[in-house]
Amino acid sequence: MDVTELSEAQRAETRRDRIGFVFQRYNLLDELTVAQNVALPLIECRGWPAARRRDAAQRAIDRVGLAGKERLRPSQLSGGEQQRVAIARAVVGRPQVILCDEPTGNLDSSTGRLVMDLLLEVHRNAADSVLVVVTHNTDVAMALDRALVIQDGMVTRAGAPQEVLAR
């Protein structure tokens, strides 16, 4: 698919239906509760009724271990918890691709490890999905199946992380 040839509406639909995003700084909306943040990608979704959207959001929240915190605001959560909410939001629509931009960059190392474990687990449970992580953290890169090194916009190395990063 050449996204540059899509209209803005088609690109929006692609983002909504096929891609889940996890940002370095979580990018949660504080005016919304955890459950509302997670359900955000489903708002315009395929004519789903409210109950189905709620159920899907609840399942995603349960998967990231935040059951019981649905009504809290993001500002009431720790950084790790906020990133979990962001992960739940990224996977709630069962996307084909999960794009993560430095998902552990804003977290301390132990929380970062927990978040990365969670991402991998979510990815393993989502059949046929691809997890793409942009990172400067070699520990994070080592946890993945394949690594690409990009320098000045060009892929300079590609392969298993151990091989690529050892060079």
Partner: peptide, 16 residues
């Protein structure tokens, strides 16, 4: 902008 951009990132169409 941030709220709108985030909504667009997660799939809000121009109409929305």
């Amino acid at each position: 902008t941030r709220g709108l951009a985030l909504r667009r990132a997660v799939g809000a169409t121009p109409r929305l």
